[in-house]
Write a protein that binds this DNA or RNA. Structure first.
Lengths: 256, 256
DNA sequence: AAGTGGTCTAGACCACGTT
DNA sequence: ACGTGGTCTAGACCACTTT
C-alpha cells in the first residue's frame, strides 16, 4: 500500500490525438484499493484501514474514500461492518458461500453439500482450456474431478482446470484434507481469491461416464454449466465445467 | 406525488414490545418514489423531477435525494442522464432490451429476435399458475404461446400466463400488430412495468409438441426456464415457462 | 446563460461494537 | 470513552445538454 499520484483535474491537454480518459478521484482510489487487494496487502477476512485513515493517506475527504469503498462493497470485494470496520471478503463465510453455487432445492431447505474428490492430476492444456485460462496450448494445468452430493444424493460432477503454475503443489491429498468450499481452500492455500465469474448454461445428454457418477441413466438431460472465474485484476484463473442433475434441484437466477 | 410524513429520527419509544423498524430518510424517500412510480405519476421514458426539485418537495438536502435515486438507478428502475435529467426505465430501449433475455450465441454477434405468436386464449388458472401469480385456482388468466427465432432458426418456445384482470382486452390480433419486446408492449398497452424477475432453470427432454415447434427430434435435451416477473410493488404479474434449444445458443449468467 | 446530474469537501451527529 | 461505519447537511465547482 503505497502513496501514488492522484490526478485532481481532467488532464487539460489530452494532446491532439490521444484520449484523456480522466476518471474521478473516487474511482482512482478504488483502483488503488483493488491493486492493494491484488498485491495481498490485506488478506481475506482482515480489516482494511478505516475510512478516516484512508482519507488521510490519500489526502482526500472521507466522503470520497467512502464512495470508493461503497462500490467495492457493492461488488462484494469488501464487506462493511458497522462499528467494527471494513473487511476483505472471504469464501469462508455463510453469507458468501452460496454466492457462486446457484443450485437450490425444488422443495424444502438447502442441504449442506458433501464434496468428494474423484481425481486430481496434471495434464496438458487443450486449446479450449488454454484459451479460457489465457495460457498456451500444452501448458501444464491441474485437472480436478469432484462430486457434490446433497443428503447423499449425487447431484453435481465438476471438472475443474487450474493453471499449473499458480496452483503448484496442489494434490488430491491436500484437497481431501480439507473441508469447506473449494474457493476458501484456494484462498488460504494458494492466496487466490475468486471475485467474479461468467457462466454459460446448456442442456445436454449425460454421457456414460457422467451418468454413472451421478447414478442416472445414460442420455438423461442434465445442465452443463461452463464457468470461468476471475480474480482481482480480472485474470481468469479457473475453468469449471459442471454437470448438474436437475430433477430435485434447479439453477436459480435473479434478473434485475 | 403527494407530500407525506417523513420520520426524522428513530422513534425513541418503540414501546416495550413492538419493533422500531426505523429506516433512514433516503430509504423513506426511495419508498415514496417507488410508490409514485407504481401509481404511474411518471410514465416509462418520462423524466422525473430534478434532484433539487425533489429535495425542496421532501424538505431534505439534495444529497439525501441523490442517495435514494442512486439506489433506484442501481436497480434499473430509473436511468440517469447527465445534463438532461433522471428518467423512468422503459423496455423500449436498446440498453435495457436484453436485460431479461439471457440467451447468447455460442459464436458471432447476437441476432435480432423474430417473435411469432402461436396462440393467445383465456383459460382457468391451474393451482400452479395461481400460486405463482398470487391468484385463486380457477381465476381467468391469459395464456400465450410464442416462438422466438434467430436468423429464421426456431430457438425458444415461451408459454406465458398473465392475470386476466390486469390484461383485459389482450388478444392475438393486438399482439400481432406489435413489433418489439413483449415487455414494452405490456408497458404501453397495459401500463404494467416489469421490474425484476426470478428464474429457475432445469434440463428436460423436449416433448412431442415442443420438439415439433422447435424443429428438433423428440427427447432432445432442452433448457426449461421458469420465470416469475414482478412489477414495482413486488407483485408477480407474469409466469413464463421458456423452452430453449441450446446447441447454437446458451444461457449466460454473471456471478458477482 | 441556465438547468441538469456528477464530484468533492468539511462538518455534524447517530448507531454499533469494543475497551 | 473511543473508534468504527451510517446518515444528513450545505455549499462549491465541474461536465453535459438545451435554450
Amino acid at each position: 500500500m503505497m502513496s501514488e499520484a492522484l490526478v485532481r483535474k481532467p488532464l487539460p491537454a489530452a494532446s491532439s490525438t490521444g484520449s484523456a480518459a480522466f476518471s474521478p478521484l473516487y474511482r482512482q482510489i478504488k483502483d488503488l484499493l483493488v491493486q492493494a487487494l491484488d498485491r495481498g496487502d490485506w488478506k481475506p477476512g482482515e480489516a482494511i484501514p478505516s475510512e478516516t485513515e484512508l482519507a488521510l493517506r490519500f489526502q482526500v475527504s472521507q466522503g470520497t474514500v467512502r464512495k470508493a469503498v461503497d462500490e467495492l462493497a457493492a461488488e462484494n470485494l469488501l464487506i462493511r461492518r458497522q462499528g467494527k470496520g471494513t473487511f476483505v471478503s472471504t469464501h469462508h463465510e455463510a453469507r458468501v458461500r452460496f454466492r457462486f453455487l446457484r443450485l437450490a432445492p425444488n422443495q424444502g431447505e438447502a442441504q449442506p453439500a458433501e464434496s468428494q474428490i474423484l481425481d486430481c492430476k496434471r495434464v496438458r492444456a487443450s486449446a479450449e482450456i488454454a484459451r479460457a485460462l489465457e495460457l498456451k496450448t500444452g501448458d501444464t494445468v491441474v485437472a480436478i474431478r469432484r462430486l457434490l452430493s446433497f443428503a447423499s444424493v449425487p447431484t453435481v460432477v465438476d471438472d475443474i482446470y487450474l493453471s499449473g503454475v499458480l496452483f503448484k503443489g496442489l494434490t488430491a491429498e491436500l484437497l481431501n484434507g480439507y473441508s469447506g468450499p473449494l474457493y476458501g481452500f484456494f484462498e488460504t492455500e494458494f492466496g487466490i481469491s475468486m471475485v467474479r465469474a461468467e457462466e454459460k448454461v446448456r442442456a445436454v445428454s449425460a454421457d456414460g461416464e457422467i451418468s454413472a457418477l451421478l447414478g442416472i441413466s445414460k442420455d438423461t438431460p442434465i445442465l452443463k454449466v461452463d464457468r470461468i472465474s476471475y480474480t482481482y485484476a480480472d485474470r481468469p484463473v479457473e475453468l469449471r465445467m459442471g454437470h448438474y442433475v436437475t430433477n430435485r434441484y434447479h439453477y436459480r437466477n435473479s434478473l434485475n
